[in-house]
Simulated assay, not measured.
Amino acid sequence: MPKISRNQPAKKRKREPVTFVDEVTGEEVRVSSVLFGFVMLIAIIVALAAWMGGSMSQIESRFAGFMDDTARMAGVSVNEVSVLGLEQDPGLQQEIRAAAMIEPGENMFRADPYIIRRRVEGTHKVLNVRVHRLWPDQVVIIADAAEPVAVWHDGKEWTVVDGLGRVIPDERAGDHPDLVRVAGRGAPEAAPALVNALADAPDVTGDLAIATRINDRRWDMRLISGATVRLPEDVELTAALGRLTDLQVRTALMQRPLKMIDLRNAGRVYLGPVNPPNFKAREIAARS
């Protein structure tokens, strides 16, 4: 009968490497092999970075240069950048072309229309910007000049506002004496809607001196006569101007000696005369 030693240590089993089966090829692949391959790939990338100068950004830059050269050889590099819609203003046309930051010879694949459009819109000088790539070698930028619609007093000076409610840089307010004048916080953004509404109310526009934005919800209009027209909130702006036009045509309301015309309540118009009647004096006169 063999002797059994109680203190004899158990033999360690040799650990088998973890494997998995590729469902496509049916081959068994050891995890250690995958890890080794991944480590080697990292090592190659690092070595390549060191060989090219020591930084990944240089690798990216040189790769981009390589792709540009390849695109040029394949005939898909930018040959022409056209700006359409601004032919009447060659200076602005050239400025928009420069803002696009696309030069002849660049890779057409890197001339991203969305990025170019954002650059052009960032000038705040044009509207309705569209950018198209016409393969293999042309970039076309289509834009409309930002037309001035109002002049805004920001508390310090007068500036010109375009049809999207944006201040137009380098535009002189003195060159636009016939535009609607606005003031107050939020006035530039709301000015285009006001100007559009006033376009349908010419009998009102002729007597308007300045419109002041109130709480970014509505307007007060000061007339040339000195009277203030209190308009309702923006959703009722067009209807209120229609009522005021009707009253002006029928009664010449805005030429009366009034201090205030309140249109904020639908169906009613409150008038504030310059010299309110003295009812007490009338009573005394009636008793005498």
Rank of each mutant, 00 (worst) to 15 (best):
M1T: 10
P2L: 05
I4C: 00
R6C: 08
P9S: 05
K11N: 07
K14P: 06
T19P: 01
T19I: 06
F20I: 10
V21T: 14
V21E: 11
D22H: 04
G26Y: 03
G26S: 02
G26W: 05
V31D: 04
S32W: 06
S33P: 01
S33N: 08
V34G: 01
G37V: 10
F38M: 07
I42W: 11
I44Y: 04
V46C: 02
A47T: 14
A47K: 06
A47S: 12
A49Q: 14
M52R: 15
G54H: 05
Q58V: 04
I59A: 08
S61Y: 11
A64G: 02
G65Y: 10
G65D: 12
M67N: 09
T70W: 14
A74Q: 12
G75N: 03
V76M: 06
N79R: 09
V81K: 01
S82C: 06
Q88F: 13
P90R: 06
G91F: 14
G91W: 14
L92S: 06
I96L: 04
R97C: 02
A98D: 14
A99F: 05
A100V: 14
A100P: 05
M101F: 09
I102L: 10
E103H: 03
P104V: 10
P104H: 09
P104G: 07
G105S: 04
M108Q: 06
R110F: 12
R110I: 05
D112V: 09
P113V: 03
Y114C: 06
R117N: 04
V120Q: 05
V120K: 05
E121F: 06
G122H: 04
H124A: 06
V126P: 02
N128D: 15
V129E: 10
V129S: 05
V131N: 01
V131M: 00
L134P: 01
W135Y: 05
D137G: 13
Q138I: 09
Q138T: 14
V140S: 09
A143F: 07
A143D: 11
A146Q: 12
E147P: 00
V149D: 11
A150G: 02
H153E: 00
H153G: 00
D154L: 00
G155M: 00
E157M: 08
G163I: 07
L164V: 12
V167Y: 05
I168R: 13
P169D: 05
A173W: 06
G174S: 03
P177C: 04
L179R: 00
V180P: 03
V182C: 00
R185S: 12
A190C: 01
A193G: 10
A201G: 03
V204H: 02
G206P: 01
L208N: 09
A209S: 14
R217C: 04
R218W: 08
R222F: 12
R222D: 15
L223D: 00
L223V: 01
G226W: 03
G226L: 01
V229I: 07
V229R: 04
E236W: 02
A240N: 06
A240G: 03
A240Q: 04
T245Y: 04
T245V: 08
D246M: 10
L247T: 06
Q248E: 15
T251D: 15
M260L: 15
L263C: 02
A266Q: 13
A266V: 14
Y270N: 10
L271S: 02
P276T: 08
P277G: 03
P277Q: 12
N278R: 14
F279R: 15
F279G: 09
K280M: 12
K280T: 15
I284M: 13
I284C: 01
S288K: 15
